[in-house]
Design a protein around this nucleic acid. Structure first.
Length: 266
DNA sequence: AAGGCGACCAACCGCGATTCC
DNA sequence: TGGAATCGCGGTTGGTCGCCT
């Protein structure tokens, strides 16, 4: 059984939007607000599919869209976020005010993928452009993509004192224990993923950024790293690991700031 | 001048997640 | 509670433009 199309394509315009269509859509959304995309075209008098209207609005017509070239700062941030998050364009875009996921995705594919991985360019020059290229960044955090309207159920946790999985439950919220626990044999990918997942759980339970919990993500990440190292009998963390953790901490600190200022995160 | 080619990017498509009834 | 409707995401396509030969 085939998938039902999002709308009937018959009699609908496709391809580039005209100025008149843009104006019609903008005026309609100004008056009635976003949402109900399926009904919007009919009500607004547009011969477009609702999905197309949504895309046009989100990627082009929204008043807060930033026009113009990507700045050096933005580019550096995109590279850093892509290293941490992979092809999670909407997440990356969420941290670049006025930029859309589509814009960032296009920018990455046309500019940054070559810059970050010059081998791609080389392969095209050698006439191997059709090959599937390995664009996967190193140590990408693959947490489940979530919207922040839902409470995140955290992965099973390891009791940091006994190193057992017996004491499974949500992170403490009474301020009496560490914000999260870490298994001793965690590798860096799991460590960062576990940290990020716990962060999301705490965010959903409003324990992040609470002054009773000891301040910013950087603070309790530092605390967790310290505890982890102590329990591993002072194993030195490799410098790139420390660097990765700092990157992640600063990213998540940004999330906190936006969360506190009322901006929707994720 | 014109055809070929590649870069760019807006728009489309399919699918998983979420919401609604 | 389950299925339909809707939303949102990421991959892909295709039109346009500019450069090169």
């Amino acid at each position: 059984m085939g998938r039902r199309p999002c709308c009937s394509k018959e009699g609908l315009n496709r391809g580039a939007w005209s100025a008149r269509e843009d104006m019609t859509l903008t005026e309609y959304i100004k008056t009635h607000g976003e949402g109900k995309w399926r009904d919007l075209p009919k009500k607004a008098g547009l011969k477009r599919c609702g999905k197309s209207c949504r895309l046009r609005w989100l990627n082009y017509l929204r008043p807060d869209i930033k026009r113009g070239n990507i700045s050096d700062d933005e580019e550096a941030l995109i590279i850093k976020l892509h290293k941490l998050l992979g092809n999670r364009w909407s997440l990356i875009a969420g941290r670049l005010p006025g930029r859309t996921d589509n814009e960032i995705k296009n920018y990455w594919n046309t500019n940054l993928s070559k810059k970050v991985n010059p081998q791609n360019q080389l392969m095209k020059i050698n006439g191997e452009g059709d090959m599937k290229l390995d664009l996967e960044p190193h140590k990408v955090i693959k947490t489940k993509a979530l919207r922040c309207t839902k409470v995140f159920v955290p992965p099973p946790q390891v009791d940091i004192k006994t190193n057992s999985t017996e004491n499974i439950g949500p992170p403490c919220t009474d301020g009496m224990c560490s914000p999260f626990s870490l298994p001793l044999d965690l590798n860096i990918e799991d460590l960062m993923s576990s940290f990020h997942d716990n962060y999301l759980f705490n965010l959903a339970n409003e324990t992040v950024g609470d002054s009773d919990q000891g301040g910013s993500t950087s603070d309790w990440l530092g605390e967790a790293m310290h505890e982890w190292r102590e329990l591993r009998e002072g194993d030195p963390l490799e410098s790139d690991v420390v660097s990765e953790m700092r990157d992640l901490a600063s990213l998540l600190d940004c999330e906190e700031e936006w969360q506190q200022s009322g901006t929707k995160v994720l």
